[in-house]
């Protein structure tokens, strides 16, 4: 016999607008159907417009895990999400800039119901929010898609990783999967309004574990440095 507890939705009792932005947001039947439909559309778009290819899918562990990748365009989170299958795809949350994706309610509804994004507020993420996200990652068996550069690259070259990533994984059994997305800058550079067709290729590397890394500033920096090196190592030689 297993212990069994009634577990209300983490976002129970929040008004709609707050619910969309809540880190405890959990989708029900309707949300799940909408997200499922959106995932299929994105996969179709990726296949048709970007001849999307994935190598190294065998490196993906069962959830929970964190995916980190280089960030060159708004296609990145969609492409990484489209590479996932099964429970990992259903439980994947892109961590998206709150000030871009969660300011207006219609945009927040789209980010929540379609992309299944969770907001991070640049420079104003509170320790409590980080703790919630870290706890959910492990307890709910989620997948976080993260771009630790903090913003899209303007010229396609990858910038240094911010240490905030360490908050989720330092001292935790949750592994980090490094990825390199090739072709995103060419397909949709930040200067363009809309994307253009162009090949996208996702290279997935073997997972890294930070279970022994201390959960402090030095540990975070170490996590960021190791992840950055692992992502860079996946960049194909020209």
């Amino acid at each position: 016999m297993s212990d069994w507890k009634i577990k209300p939705a983490r976002d129970l009792g929040l008004p709609t607008a707050e619910r969309l932005r809540s880190h405890g947001r959990e989708a029900g039947l309707v949300g799940g159907l909408l997200q499922g439909g959106w995932r299929r559309l994105v996969r179709l778009y990726m296949a048709v417009m970007h001849r999307f290819a994935v190598t190294g899918r065998e490196h993906l562990p069962p959830p929970p895990f964190v995916i980190v990748a280089n960030h060159a365009s708004h296609l990145d989170a969609l492409a990484v999400g489209a590479a996932l299958r099964g429970p990992a795809a259903r439980r994947a949350h892109a961590l998206a800039a709150g000030d871009t994706f969660f300011t207006s309610t219609p945009m927040a509804a789209f980010a929540a119901y379609a992309i299944n994004a969770l907001p991070v507020w640049r420079r104003r993420t509170r320790p409590k929010d980080l703790a919630t996200l870290r706890a959910r990652l492990e307890e709910d068996g989620l997948v976080f898609i993260l771009f630790p550069e903090g913003t899209r690259s303007r010229d396609g070259a990858m910038a240094a990783f911010q240490p905030g990533l360490g908050a989720f994984v330092a001292g935790s059994p949750v592994p980090v999967v490094p990825c390199w997305l090739e072709g995103a800058h060419a397909a949709w550079p930040p200067q363009r309004r809309w994307p253009r067709p162009g090949r996208l290729h996702l290279h997935i590397g073997p997972p890294l574990s930070f279970a022994e890394t201390p959960q402090d500033r030095a540990g975070w920096t170490q996590v960021a440095a190791q992840c950055e090196a692992a992502v860079r190592a996946l960049e194909p030689r020209r």
């Binding site: 009634i6 577990k7 209300p8 939705a9 129970l12 959990e26 029900g28 039947l29 799940g32």
Partner: peptide, 18 residues
Amino acid sequence: LREYDRATGLFREHWLVA
């Protein structure tokens, strides 16, 4: 049903809710 399933956690069981 929606209020009940979110309060009890039944909403995580998509097949049953369906």
